Structures are given as structure tokens and as C-alpha cells.
Simulated scan of single mutants.
Amino acid sequence: MSKVLMKGNEALAEGAILAGCRGFFGYPITPSSEIAEYMARKLPRIGGVFIQAESELAAINMVYGGASAGARVMTASSGPGLSLKQEGISFIAEAELPCLIVNVSRGGPGLGGIQPSQGDYFQATRGGGHGDYHTLVLAPASTQEMMDFAIKGYELADRYRIPVVIMAEGTLGNLMEPVALRDEQTDFPEKPWATNGCRGRKPNIVNTLHLPAEELEARNRHLFRKYKDIAQNEKRAETFMVEDADIVVVAFGLLARVIKRSVVEARKRGVKAGLIRPITLWPFPDEHIKEAANTCKVMLAVEINMGQMIQDIRLAVEGRIPVEFYGRIGILPNPEEVTREILAVAERKGF
């Protein structure tokens, strides 16, 4: 494999193309705009379609249409743009249409700023739109993973017929690192449900309206059987020096890379620290948390928000050990300050 220096946003776009994405529908918003720019340059050259829609609402409904026809399609945006797309995402989830939705997060609420943020955790992991549904959520931590998770995202989307969200901080979207390019494209699975023309069969119809109560309930139970399968099979996390840790830090995305150094430094200063990095934010890797809670004394959630993932950590530990929190807003904490917080928690807890 050859290696190329790429921005995270560009690597993600290239990964989507390698996975067979041939339709991008979006509306520019920093810090995600490089994805649209890359797709605008590349897709027309390979027989794909790039459309800068008149709005985020239009863009997500174009994704609905492209996915209904069986194509691998995607959109990318950031906080306020994703908020506008939520109705369409709910429709896509109910219709069981596989697609890729990228959130290169900015600060909030409101317009916020383009600084790094993880404030959209609730939006991504709790569905975000109306009704009972989930999206499968991946959180990359490197430029290489931006590419790899785009490819993996389409694989998961097609396997489970579900929209897959990739959530990355704005810093990661603009971080330049060497990326190993894959030479091959992924295979397309058969999609017998797609609305892709008359083929001598019963017409396929994509519909999300279920007026009879019994029909609506049956539909939701069907969806949640699928979500249960995803939760059983697709939880992913990375662990680092957890086995003998007294304090386990839980962090995701680019922030987790920073904290690896903090963990090593804390151990040099006599505190046995470890790290769990959730890779899937939904389904949340609660088994990894529960297993670590059997041996550690305290957990520390570190997030670039006011405390969101900490709720999932507390649900996982079920009150067996305390869970502390350290957060910044629009600022990626440096290793030294996280080390200080680890040492401070250890001192407060008496070890």
C-alpha cells in the first residue's frame, strides 16, 4: 500500500469513494466543507454525482432517494447542519436505507464555533430526530481511521440496512497525517429491496407511513430486533493499560490519542492509570466498561463537552464505582492537563 499525506476530511472522502460511494449530497459548513470540496472534484471524474443542495433538508432527502435506489450515497455536515437533517435521518432509519452520514463536529449550542467539540454525542447516540430509532455511530481517532471507518461504515450500513454516522472532531477533520491507500474497492451486496426499476418482479416500495397501530408497533419491534443484533455483534472499543489500572479514563475520538500519553505519564508518577476508547458510540461498548469496573477503583470521563458520554459510563458501571468527569469546551485538552486531573482524582480517592 502506498502512503499519502492527507487531511482527515479528505481521507474520509477518499475512503467513501473506495467503498463505492457515487453520490454526495450536501451543503457546506465548516469544519466539514473539505469533504464536499473533495467529492466535487473527484465524483464527476468517475461517473458519480455531486450535488450542492439548496439546503440541508434537501440534501438529506436526496440521500434518502439515492439510498432507496440501492446506491452507496452520503452526506457530510456539522452541528447546525446535522440538526436540520434530523427529520430526514429519522425517515431513512425507519425505511432501513443504508447510507453514510458524517458529522465533523463544531462547538455549540447554536452556531457555536469551529473549535473542536464532542457536544453532538447525545444527538448521534440518541437518534436525534423523532420516533424510536438508532443510527450506528463510529468515532475515528486518526486520519487513517477516517478513511478506514468510511469503508467500514458502508459495510455495516449494507449489512444491517441502517444509516451509519461517523462523528469526528473538527481538529481531526483538518489534521494531516500519512494515510495508507487501499488499492481495491469493496464489493457491493445484492439489494433486492431497492427501487431500481422494473425487473419482472413485484414493485419495491419505500414507505415510512404506518397508520394502523398494530402495523406501526410491528414495524418498531422489527427495527428493535435489528438494533438488538447490532448491540450484540458490533460493540467496539480499544483498551490501553487497563488490566491493572486503579483509575480508568474513558474518552473517544482524537482526544483518546492525547490521553494515551497522559496515562503513561501518570504511571511514571505512581498512579496506575488506563484508557478505554469507545470506537462505536452506539452501540456503546458497555461490556468493556463493566469488565474494567470489576478491578479499577474509579473511572474518569474526559470529553470536549459539559458531560454526555459520562451518562453511558454510569449506566454501565451500575453504581459499583464512582465516575468522575473532566471536560473542556471548544478546546482539545493537552496531555499535561489530563495527567494533572488523573493525579488529582487519585489523590481525592486516596490511592
Rank of each mutant, 00 (worst) to 15 (best):
F122K: 14
M167E: 03
R182N: 13
R182L: 15
V137L: 10
D158V: 11
T208Q: 08
E214R: 10
E215P: 04
A251D: 07
H130R: 15
N233L: 02
Y160H: 11
M241A: 15
L254M: 10
Y133I: 05
K202I: 14
L156W: 02
P192N: 08
L172Y: 00
G200P: 08
E145H: 09
C198Y: 06
I162F: 00
V250G: 01
A168P: 06
D148S: 11
Y121N: 12
V165F: 12
Q232Y: 08
F240Y: 15
G113D: 14
A245F: 06
Q144C: 05
T135A: 07
L209S: 14
L223R: 15
R159H: 11
Q118F: 04
Q232M: 08
A168S: 11
G153I: 01
A213E: 13
F252Q: 06
F188R: 10
E177G: 07
A157Y: 01
M146F: 08
G127W: 05
N174V: 06
D120N: 05
E177N: 07
K152F: 07
N196W: 03
F240E: 02
E145Q: 15
M167G: 03
Q123C: 01
P189Q: 03
I114K: 05
M146D: 05
G119N: 09
G128H: 03
T195G: 01
D229I: 13
F252M: 09
Q232N: 10
I166C: 05
L254Y: 02
H222A: 10
Q115G: 09
P203Q: 00
L136Y: 04
E169R: 02
L254T: 05
G173F: 00
P178Q: 10
E238Q: 15
K235D: 09
R182D: 11
E184G: 10
L255A: 00
N204W: 07
S117V: 00
S117L: 04
G119H: 02
Y160E: 08
A218D: 13
D183K: 14
G197R: 01
P163S: 12
V250P: 00
A256F: 09
A168T: 05
P212Q: 08
P212V: 15
E243Q: 06
E238D: 14
G197F: 06
L216E: 15
F149Y: 12
N207F: 11
K152V: 02
L181G: 10
T208S: 11
P163Q: 08
V206N: 00
P178T: 10
Y133D: 06
V249E: 03
G253S: 03
P140M: 07
R236G: 01
V250T: 05
R161P: 03
L223C: 15
Y154G: 06
V242S: 03
P116T: 04
M146T: 02
F240H: 04
R221D: 15
L211W: 15
R236Y: 03
P192Y: 05
Q185P: 10
G129S: 05
R161W: 09
E238C: 14
L255E: 02
A245M: 03
G127L: 05
I166G: 04
M241N: 14
H134K: 11
K191M: 12
R199F: 12
Y121T: 12
L254Q: 01
Y133P: 05
L223E: 09
E190Q: 11
E145R: 04
A180C: 12
M241L: 15
